[in-house]
Design a binder for these strands. Structure first.
Lengths: 192, 192
DNA sequence: GTCTATACGACGATAGAC
DNA sequence: GTCTATCGTCGTATAGAC
């Protein structure tokens, strides 16, 4: 950790590459963006870039990881529908990254894919966090209790991902309305 | 239509190619399946195959189209949760095609993409059919009416698409449970 | 450790002969 | 309608300079 010397420069360069890649994907989309283009942006040859990453898929996986991390950081301490909406609103400003996320999600279905672990980890974690929030709301009597929070979490995440798919095709699709609607469906019933 | 001669053979060959492509994608997945492999299956060279399609993306788009058509045909006259479940159950048996669908969906966000029109057409049509069904259920008093059917349709489709994304990563995810759950949420409230 | 140069095989695509 | 030949680009691999 307290390593001296060339390590620092290397780590900085690695960060610069990830940042450049994220920018290019956000601007020009996932398809049609080659590693050579990313390398050029960093004043590097292609093998120079590959020195820092095992493969293209490895780089893409890490792009997604830093993206996830910064997003999580930005909305820390905010919970429930507001955080939910914030994530989605940010996605709306970077369609290229949404496309990257969806494409990678499909590609990572192969257990051999380097991003498989990332996604395999992401969903349970997300589910847990959402379920926790739902449980709290239920305890406060602000939410119906006839479906367990773990199952509702799966449902809410599916809505968020699915609405992004529709939005990618038709940008006029509201990403917030379905969120609001599903929340309305979760309002406590008279009997609760 | 009643055209004579080489046309019939051409159309037959085109169909054979699409069928072969669908089989290969279903078996081996979307990534890593080249046109040359599809061509070989049809006893054709790559340019021989390209004679029938403008580009790879054009072929993929048409694969998706025939897939959609056969699916729609098979579940004609069935409506509501049963049809819903049937589509999803069939998807579960062909992960390669689900992956293809999701990947294409992301790629088709570019208006220039050959599949853009397909998806741009697909969602409104789907929404309309679902909304129609929901309206009928509402009229019959079997469903809550505080959210208009058009908005619920967007929601239901998002759930179906989104749950597929989760299932692609974790095959143990139930694709039916969230469907059942969201249907339960739509049960009529005492006041309706 | 950092990086360039060069080369490889496979891809999608196209031109033109038959 | 189908082929052979070829093109440009992709991701990748290796050798070696600094």
């Amino acid at each position: 950790m307290a390593k001296r010397g060339p390590y620092e420069k290397g780590e900085a360069k690695r960060g610069e590459i990830l940042h450049a890649a994220l920018e290019i994907f956000a601007a020009e989309g996932y398809r049609g963006t080659s590693l050579r283009k990313v390398a050029a942006r960093c004043n590097l040859s292609l093998p120079g870039l590959m020195h820092y990453f095992d493969s293209k898929e490895d780089l893409l996986t890490q792009v997604l990881r830093v993206r996830d991390e910064t997003a999580r950081e930005r909305q820390r301490e905010r919970a429930g529908p507001e955080a939910y909406r914030e994530i989605i609103r940010e996605g709306a400003s970077t369609p290229g990254l949404v496309e990257l996320f969806v494409s990678m999600s499909a590609a990572a279905s192969d257990p051999e894919h380097p991003a498989h672990a990332h996604f395999a980890d992401r969903y349970p974690t997300l589910r847990e966090r959402v379920a926790e929030y739902l449980q709290r709301r239920m305890d406060e009597g602000e939410m119906r209790t006839d479906i367990p929070p773990e199952r509702l979490a799966v449902l809410l995440i599916a809505v968020a991902d699915g609405i992004q798919l529709q939005w990618l095709i038709d940008r006029s699709t509201s990403m917030e309305q379905p969120i609001d609607d599903v929340m309305a469906l979760l309002a406590p019933r008279p009997g609760d």
